[in-house]
Amino acid sequence: MPTPAGLRLHHAEIRESHFARAVSLSPDFDTAKIDGNLQDGVLKLMIPRRDEARPRRIEVQTS
């Protein structure tokens, strides 16, 4: 952006709005069901586990 005539620039900031981040996920996660929320500059991702990867409860019979 050019400086207006008659003004001398002491300090200038240029905001870059592009940001990218890449992460690798374990195959235990269901990437088809990722949900995200951006609020107040904070990105929150919810990445559920696949049903097969979730811990399961096994009932044990005792005699």
Results as ranks from 00 to 15, higher is better:
residue 9 L to M: 06
residue 45 L to E: 08
residue 12 A to T: 03
residue 48 P to I: 11
residue 33 K to Y: 01
residue 51 D to F: 09
residue 40 D to A: 14
residue 5 A to G: 02
residue 29 F to V: 02
residue 59 E to L: 15
residue 14 I to T: 09
residue 59 E to C: 08
residue 38 L to N: 09
residue 40 D to V: 02
residue 63 S to M: 10
residue 38 L to T: 04
residue 42 V to R: 03
residue 10 H to V: 07
residue 38 L to Y: 04
residue 31 T to E: 01
residue 42 V to P: 00
residue 54 R to S: 12
residue 63 S to Y: 08
residue 5 A to W: 02
residue 53 A to E: 11
residue 20 A to L: 13
residue 5 A to D: 08
residue 48 P to Y: 05
residue 11 H to C: 01
residue 36 G to M: 08
residue 44 K to L: 13
residue 40 D to W: 05
residue 25 L to T: 00
residue 54 R to D: 12
residue 50 R to Y: 02
residue 26 S to W: 03
residue 32 A to I: 01
residue 49 R to F: 14
residue 55 P to V: 10
residue 34 I to Q: 00
residue 5 A to P: 03
residue 58 I to W: 04
residue 3 T to R: 04
residue 58 I to P: 00
residue 63 S to T: 11
residue 62 T to H: 08
residue 8 R to G: 02
residue 24 S to Y: 09
residue 56 R to Y: 11
residue 28 D to Q: 14
residue 52 E to D: 15
residue 34 I to H: 01
residue 42 V to K: 04
residue 54 R to Y: 03
residue 16 E to S: 09
residue 56 R to D: 12
residue 5 A to Q: 07
residue 48 P to M: 12
residue 4 P to G: 03
residue 39 Q to Y: 09
residue 40 D to Q: 14
residue 8 R to K: 14
residue 16 E to G: 08
residue 46 M to I: 10
residue 38 L to I: 15
residue 19 F to I: 12
residue 60 V to C: 05
residue 40 D to T: 06
residue 38 L to H: 01
residue 18 H to Q: 08
residue 25 L to G: 03
residue 12 A to H: 03
residue 2 P to I: 03
residue 49 R to K: 14
residue 39 Q to A: 11
residue 39 Q to K: 15
residue 17 S to C: 05
residue 47 I to P: 00
residue 49 R to D: 09
residue 6 G to T: 06
residue 13 E to V: 12
residue 15 R to E: 11
residue 12 A to V: 09
residue 27 P to H: 06
residue 16 E to C: 04
residue 18 H to Y: 08
residue 48 P to A: 10
residue 17 S to K: 11
residue 61 Q to T: 10
residue 20 A to S: 15
residue 52 E to G: 07
residue 46 M to N: 13
residue 24 S to N: 09
residue 36 G to E: 02
residue 12 A to Q: 09
residue 39 Q to T: 11
residue 33 K to D: 04
residue 46 M to T: 15
residue 2 P to T: 05
residue 2 P to E: 05
residue 8 R to M: 05
residue 61 Q to G: 11
residue 24 S to I: 04
residue 35 D to R: 15
residue 51 D to M: 14
residue 17 S to D: 13
residue 25 L to P: 01
residue 1 M to Y: 01
residue 15 R to G: 05
residue 35 D to T: 15
residue 22 A to N: 13
residue 13 E to G: 00
residue 13 E to D: 07
residue 17 S to I: 12
residue 60 V to R: 05
residue 62 T to Q: 11
residue 41 G to R: 10
residue 3 T to G: 01
residue 49 R to M: 12
residue 4 P to Q: 07
residue 58 I to G: 05
residue 26 S to L: 06
residue 42 V to M: 03
residue 40 D to F: 04
residue 9 L to I: 06
residue 50 R to K: 15
residue 56 R to P: 00
residue 37 N to Q: 14
residue 53 A to N: 05
residue 1 M to I: 06
residue 60 V to T: 13
residue 5 A to E: 12
residue 54 R to F: 03
residue 29 F to I: 04
residue 26 S to D: 15
residue 51 D to W: 10
residue 12 A to S: 08
residue 42 V to D: 06
residue 18 H to S: 11
residue 59 E to P: 07
residue 1 M to C: 02
residue 14 I to P: 00
residue 6 G to L: 06
residue 25 L to I: 02
residue 28 D to E: 12
residue 23 V to L: 13
residue 9 L to F: 00
residue 63 S to E: 13
residue 9 L to N: 09
residue 27 P to T: 12
residue 4 P to M: 03
residue 9 L to C: 06
residue 63 S to D: 14
